[in-house]
């Protein structure tokens, strides 16, 4: 059996989740605590990938990042093209799972009583310290929940990844795409094995993260 799709999917989902974690915490915090014009619009925009068909999302990404776009040309010049590479798969699955991360983070930050932060300030701690010692730990559970959801979503992404990264065995063929490929080739037996492994892997990673969360909370 070819293990490549497993390894690739794990790598892609991990990287995508890492990107989402950084961006999601920052944006979630801004949406929860910030008072700026266009906040609602920004919140709506970050949720859109959740309701669009993944192929539509993939189309947008292809147009925005493809060889003919300014961004695509710049990436080409830097020697890191995205389209039809594993990096494209990372970007596609990251964008597809981003709403879950942002929404979880926003809700987590909104759940932190601002009065706790205010008291922390009167006790002489800087904004950064207050964020690190009060806001972040108290929002931790919600952020972790968002991370789990986003990771699972990124791991299972099909449509957007297929549009942006294509289906190149040994290079961009993730597990979800490999399942489709195998079924198309009529090899239902192998598809069943892939599906079973993917399912087991998903459940195990969710369990692991839950346990980690419990340890953090204790």
């Amino acid at each position: 059996m070819d293990w490549f799709p497993f390894v690739l999917s794990a790598q892609v989902a991990t990287l995508a989740t890492g990107l989402n974690l950084v961006a999601g915490v920052a944006l979630g915090w801004a949406l929860a605590r910030g008072r700026f014009p266009g906040r609602d619009l920004l919140a709506a925009l970050t949720t859109v990938p959740l309701v669009l068909p993944p192929t539509v999302l993939g189309y947008y990404l292809l147009v925005a990042l493809g060889r003919t776009s300014p961004i695509g040309q710049a990436l080409d010049a830097l020697g890191v093209p995205l389209v039809f590479t594993w990096r494209g798969a990372v970007v596609a699955s990251a964008v597809a799972s981003f709403p879950l991360m942002v929404q979880s983070c926003r809700a987590a930050f909104e759940g932190v009583d601002p009065e706790l932060e205010q008291v922390a300030r009167t006790l002489g701690r800087s904004e950064l310290e207050v964020f690190r010692t009060i806001t972040l730990p108290l929002a931790g559970r919600g952020i972790l929940a968002g991370t789990v959801l986003a990771f699972a979503r990124a791991l299972g992404d099909f449509g957007a990844t297929l549009m942006v990264a294509g289906n190149i065995p040994g290079r961009t063929q993730t597990l979800a795409i490999a399942v489709y490929d195998t079924v198309q080739a009529g090899n239902l037996g192998l598809a069943g094995v892939l599906v079973a492994v993917l399912t087991a892997f998903s459940i195990l990673s969710l369990l692991a993260i839950q346990r980690l969360g419990r340890r953090l909370a204790a």
Partner: peptide, 27 residues
């Protein structure tokens, strides 16, 4: 607020729920 040196106890106390009594006082 950081530079004011005031001891503020809001209604409902606003103790840090994730910190021990010791760490609350030491904050």
């Amino acid at each position: 607020p950081q530079a004011r040196r005031v001891g503020y106890v809001p209604q409902g106390y606003a103790l840090f729920p994730h910190l021990s009594v010791f760490d609350n006082v030491a904050y």
